[in-house]
């Protein structure tokens, strides 16, 4: 069926199979490949996008459900050539390694900071519970979020004499 939706502020109109997920539609039909598929089952959070203002796992939403809606993906985070505060904080604090979880992670952080601009460490952990990272062990992601929310990160226990 034909659907209409807004992605990162631009309107799209496309034919789509009823069983196509929003994730595949974004990646394969519209070319927003920044959003990743890690499990296809709503477990890993790598496909997190904003849908009508809230984060969803795009693998768990059908494209037809997004008809008439608005979606924001990682490609929409750079505004006027400027990186977002969250992107810069991840960059500065090594909040990523392989990068496969990063797009979803950053959008989950964005949602968390909307709700709670100065989250504590525990609130960060709660807020990002739905996103797996297999590389970092999470510490440097937590530090990135503290930095992004203007709270100086407590730098691990690295000792370099």
């Amino acid at each position: 069926m034909k659907i209409q939706l807004t992605v990162n502020g631009s309107r799209y109109e496309k034919d789509v199979e009823e069983n196509r997920t929003l994730l595949r539609f974004l990646r394969e039909d519209l070319g927003f490949t920044g959003t990743k598929e890690g499990c296809g089952a709503g477990e890993c959070g790598a496909c997190t996008v904003f849908f009508n203002g809230k984060t969803v796992n795009a693998c768990m939403v059908l494209a037809v459900e997004a008809d008439g809606g608005s979606v924001e993906t990682i490609e929409g985070e750079v505004k006027d050539g400027k990186f977002s505060v969250i992107q810069e904080a991840f960059d500065r604090n090594h909040g990523l390694q392989c990068g496969f979880c990063t797009a979803g992670m950053i959008l989950s952080v964005k949602e968390l900071l909307h709700r709670n601009p100065k989250p504590t460490e525990d609130q960060i952990k709660d807020g990002l519970e739905g996103n797996f990272c297999r590389c970092t062990g999470y510490t440097q992601i937590i530090e990135s979020v503290l930095d992004a929310s203007g709270q100086l990160p407590k730098k691990g226990e690295l000792h370099h004499a």
Partner: peptide
Amino acid sequence: LGVSLPRDDAQGKTTGAIRFTDDFL
């Protein structure tokens, strides 16, 4: 050396611009 420079690929990864194998579909 001994300096925590940001990763070369950090911006490519935080913007989703960097491409993994299946992104070349």
